[in-house]
Amino acid sequence: MPTLAPIKVSEETDALVSHTAHFLTKSKKSVVEDAVREYIDNHRDEINGAVRDALAQLDGSRGAAVAMLADIDESELDDLGGVPKA
């Protein structure tokens, strides 16, 4: 059996999920799982594009990774003192 990981949603979203589950005679878990899978399927090209963009920013260096995580370019990171070479 897979490990369950709780997620937090707003009360409004929880109510929507509860009503949907009730009227479709499904569990709330099933409604959420179906919705997430459908969302990902419908946005797969956008998600893959974002992954490709992120990978294109990385050159394997620690500086590139830090710059990407900080949402700055490497020249800005250098202006801030850079990242020590390890």
Rank of each mutant, 00 (worst) to 15 (best):
E76H: 08
R52E: 14
N48C: 06
T3Q: 13
Q57R: 13
D73K: 01
V66A: 03
V51Q: 06
S10A: 01
S18P: 03
P6K: 09
E46F: 06
V51S: 05
L4I: 08
A65S: 14
V66S: 07
S75V: 10
G82Q: 01
P84F: 15
D59W: 02
A35N: 00
T25G: 11
A67C: 06
R44H: 08
E38D: 15
M1A: 14
V36A: 05
N42I: 00
A67L: 03
K26R: 14
G60R: 10
V66T: 13
L55V: 10
A21L: 02
D73T: 01
D73V: 02
G60V: 06
D79A: 15
D59T: 00
A5D: 06
K85P: 11
P2R: 15
S30P: 04
L16V: 06
V83Y: 03
E33C: 07
V31A: 07
M1H: 06
L58F: 07
G60H: 11
K28S: 04
H19Y: 14
K26N: 04
R62M: 11
V66I: 15
K29I: 05
A64I: 01
A54R: 08
V83A: 01
H22Y: 14
L80M: 13
G63P: 10
A15P: 00
I40F: 11
D14R: 08
H43W: 05
A70F: 07
A65F: 13
P2E: 14
D14G: 07
S18W: 07
A15F: 06
I72V: 15
R62K: 11
N42L: 12
I47V: 11
R44P: 03
I72T: 02
S75E: 11
E12D: 15
E33G: 01
P6E: 03
L4W: 10
A56S: 08
A65R: 15
S61L: 03
L4K: 12
I47R: 06
